[in-house]
Design a protein around this nucleic acid. Structure first.
Lengths: 153, 153
DNA sequence: GGTATTTACTTTAGGCTTAAAATATTATAC
DNA sequence: GTATAATATTTTAAGCCTAAAGTAAATACC
């Protein structure tokens, strides 16, 4: 029962809930397809995408900075991906604390497939908006994102 | 490296990533404020909101249906909320498998505070959009959400 | 050169999440 | 009335996530 809020607040809550629900429901669809069609997960995909983008590898800390998740989180995902043989860890010769992580050849091949499917899914999901509409959506979302960032200073 | 996709696909990926990032970043801000200012979590808030909405209580399965999360998930959150004295569980008299869950008096009082703060945060986050813009955003999001739902049939 | 601080990373504790198995109870079929 | 199926819920196993503590190595300071 939200009716004791004023009309403006109700509208704000409505928009936020729709934003959350839309994003979550697309994300859930992607997770399900990654699991059922590709036997992988979104966090694994995200790590592989980061490594595909940085072709000469990343350190663990660079990886967690890039993905904006905690250090310990990356440790777990990377070690499971390494178990699967999709990524390789090599010791840094100059700094024995550090290691460089990159996609293995099979990881590269695997990601190529994943990325293609992923792009098709997104293409399909975004179909209902034409170029102008998706530009409008992008602009409105950017306004929200930028405002929020400023509040976090 | 997304440049081997056509312009349309690139635009779709860009919009989806912005949608995901905006939603996640707002959600993260809410989680942080709930934790730091209210010593609680978003899942706890969601359960309390559902029970506040259904004043005569809900069964565990009704609760997990309403929140669209798994049964076992609700079990954990509800038992932690019960430990904190914020909700009460009563056995169903006619069905000994079932129980009815509702907010305790202190849970109701607590949620009243939480909901007010939550609404203020959302109000603040949505400030950059005027009524017309937020209506546009709502409409575009609804188009995406509806399309996605249809694909899941 | 030796101590203190910083840096790179892992481990731990605890909560969230799911799917699948397990339990207990109710309802159905015969 | 008893066997079977359905329902309500919890438990379990495994991954994801964070903050905080721990470990090891590099750097800075003196």
């Amino acid at each position: 029962m939200v009716n004791h809020y004023d009309a403006n607040t109700r509208q704000h809550l409505r928009v936020w809930l729709k934003l959350l629900k839309t994003s979550t429901s697309i994300e859930t669809a992607l997770r399900e397809r990654l699991k059922k069609e590709c036997s992988t997960t979104l966090p694994r995909f995200d790590v592989m995408a980061a490594l595909d983008h940085h072709t000469d590898g990343l350190r663990m800390t660079e990886l967690s900075d890039f993905l904006m998740v905690s250090n310990g989180n990356v440790t777990g995902i990377v070690s499971r991906l390494a178990e699967s043989g999709l990524i390789e860890r090599t010791q840094d010769t100059h700094d024995r604390r550090a290691q460089k992580v990159c996609l293995s050849p099979s990881g590269q091949a695997e990601f190529k497939q994943l990325a293609q499917r992923h792009a098709q899914w997104i293409d399909d999901i975004m179909q209902p908006l034409n170029t102008e509409e998706s530009n409008t959506l992008l602009t409105l979302l950017e306004r929200l994102a930028n405002h929020k960032v400023n509040k976090n200073d």
